[in-house]
Structures are given as structure tokens and as C-alpha cells.
């Protein structure tokens, strides 16, 4: 069983939803970002999503855009992002790690070589934002052959007729993009989530994570009342940004402030009701 499947199975047995915090690789520098990654499981992260910096993140709002640029400025590359995961795996062999990014840096690395190196580094799943089902055959065979889950995105614009195509070949979990918009800009209402989730569940047995609009502990808790996991990204990046000095360097409290927020979000998710 993959780390992702094992984690969701364990949480199901425990009777609660998962909390998935997001961080951008090398944001604002290698050491700070590594410290945040290392601290996340202890602060209550059930899975971790790591953003791979890209110059042109078309589906992301300002928070992730700026985080990516900070990472790139600090020297992030795809190889260095994989090295972060390898380092993390030396002391944590159970917390699933999912990479989120755009196709071009993966394509430039070489898709086959990337899936090989990612699996060897201890990556469990891939979210490639600009790789819709229509183009997914570029990645799916390579990822599947190496035991990497390809996590498919379902959007509010995805209609029921299209769902089987979108979910085809996906594994690990399904990522429901809760809003029509870029990351961190708006929050889906509970009613919107309650309307969408049954349609997705009817089409797949995979766990469903909700992301793209969750900022607060209350919103994360609300999400896991209907879904299996809540992803929070931009709100954590905003906290990180606010802790930087004028030159954009990490402050003395950067790691602690981000991890405190992870803890608060995680506690809210743990206290929320279990999906029926």
C-alpha cells in the first residue's frame, strides 16, 4: 500500500479527516523551508504538499506566485526540491509528500527521469496543474510504473459527464478545486461543497481533498465535514511573508509562526466531525 493510501486508511479508522498544509520549496531559503517541512508532521500535518517553484504559475494567486519567486531567487530547482524530500525521508518514512507544480520544469527535467528520481527521493504523489486529462498520457504511464500517485484535479466547472475522464488514471486522492479562480483568492461556501462532494463520491472511491479557498481553522474544519482532507496554502504563505524582513529574509520567528498556524489548523480539523 502506498503511503497516501495507508495514511487515509489509518485516518478512516481513526474517524477523522486529514489536514494537508502547503509550502513552497526554498521559500524564502533552503534552510527555513527545510525547517518548516521537518516541523510540519509534529505540528499536525497528515500529508504535506510541496510547491515546485515556476516562473509562470498560471493557476495561482499572488501568495503562491510570490512564494515561487522567492524560492527561485533563493536558488530552487527541481533537483533541489527532490533533494529536500530525500532529506525529509531520512527521519520521516510515513508522512505522505505530494509535489504540486507545472509541467514545464518537469518536462525540462525529462518526464521519465523525473518520475524515477521523485519516487527514489520518497515523493508519493504528483499534482501537475496544467496537465488536464486530455494531455495526461504524457505522465501517467511513467508515474504509475514507479508507484507515484497522480492526483487529479476536479473543478466546479467539471460536469458529471466529464468526471470519469478526469478521474481516469488518477490515484491517491482526488483534489477538488473548490472555487473557480486562482489559489487563495476566494472561499467556497459550505453549501457549494455540500453540493459538489456527492457528485465526486459517486464517481470515485478515492478520498477527496478540498483546496484553493481554505484559509482559517473554521473553514478547514468545515471542509472535512464533507470531504476527506483540507488543503491550506496561501494563508500559510501570507504568514511566512509577514514574518520576513525588508530584504525578504526569514525572521527569527518565521518557522515558529508558520508551524503554529499549521497546529491551529490541524487541531480544528481533528476536532471536526467525521465524514459520514
Amino acid at each position: 500500500m502506498s503511503r497516501i493510501a495507508a495514511k487515509f486508511a489509518a485516518l478512516k479508522a481513526e474517524g477523522r479527516g486529514a489536514f494537508i498544509p502547503f509550502l513552497e520549496a526554498w521559500d524564502p531559503d533552503s534552510a527555513t523551508s527545510m525547517a518548516i517541512l521537518r516541523g510540519m508532521p509534529g505540528a499536525g500535518a497528515d500529508l504535506i504538499e510541496i510547491g515546485c517553484p515556476f516562473t509562470d504559475p498560471m493557476a495561482d494567486g499572488p501568495a503562491v506566485q510570490l512564494a515561487g519567486l522567492r524560492g527561485l531567487k533563493a536558488g530552487a530547482t527541481m533537483a533541489r526540491t527532490l533533494a529536500m524530500v530525500r532529506e525529509f525521508r531520512r527521519e520521516d518514512d510515513t508522512t505522505p509528500v505530494v509535489l504540486m507544480g507545472y509541467l514545464n520544469p518537469i518536462d525540462s527535467y525529462g518526464i521519465e527521469r523525473f518520475t524515477t528520481d521523485a519516487a527514489a527521493a520518497g515523493v508519493d504523489g504528483l499534482i501537475v496543474v496544467d496537465l488536464p486529462s486530455e494531455e495526461a498520457d504524457l505522465l501517467l504511464p511513467h508515474a504509475t510504473a514507479r508507484g507515484l500517485d497522480v492526483i487529479r484535479l476536479v473543478a466546479p466547472t467539471t460536469d458529471v459527464a466529464r468526471l470519469p475522464l478526469v478521474l481516469n488514471g488518477g490515484s491517491g486522492f482526488v483534489y477538488f478545486v473548490a472555487i473557480t479562480g486562482v489559489t487563495g483568492t476566494r472561499t467556497a461556501s459550505a453549501a457549494e461543497l455540500e453540493a459538489a462532494l456527492p457528485l465526486i463520491r459517486a464517481a470515485t472511491d478515492l478520498p477527496v481533498a478540498v483546496g484553493f479557498g481554505l484559509r482559517t481553522p473554521a473553514q478547514a474544519a468545515e471542509a472535512v465535514r464533507v470531504a476527506d482532507a483540507a488543503v491550506v496554502g496561501s494563508a500559510l504563505l501570507d504568514t511566512l511573508l509577514a514574518s520576513l524582513d525588508e530584504q525578504g529574509r526569514a525572521g527569527p520567528n518565521t518557522v515558529r509562526l508558520v508551524l503554529d498556524q499549521v497546529r491551529a489548523l490541524s487541531e480544528a480539523v481533528r476536532a471536526a466531525r467525521v465524514p459520514a
Binding site: 493557476a59 488536464p132 494531455e135 473543478a155 466547472t157 467539471t158 460536469d159 478545486v177 473557480t180
Partner: peptide, 20 residues
């Protein structure tokens, strides 16, 4: 039919945009 000219072209957009 996939919007390709040889190896080039295609539809590399987020799922939110794909139906549109």
C-alpha cells in the same frame, strides 16, 4: 484532433478552464 501540429500545440490548461 488533439490540437497538435506535429509535437506542438495541445491544451495544457488547468481543469477549471478545460471545459471552457
Amino acid at each position: 484532433g488533439r490540437g497538435r501540429f506535429g509535437d506542438f500545440g495541445g491544451r495544457f490548461v488547468a481543469e477549471t478552464l478545460m471545459p471552457l
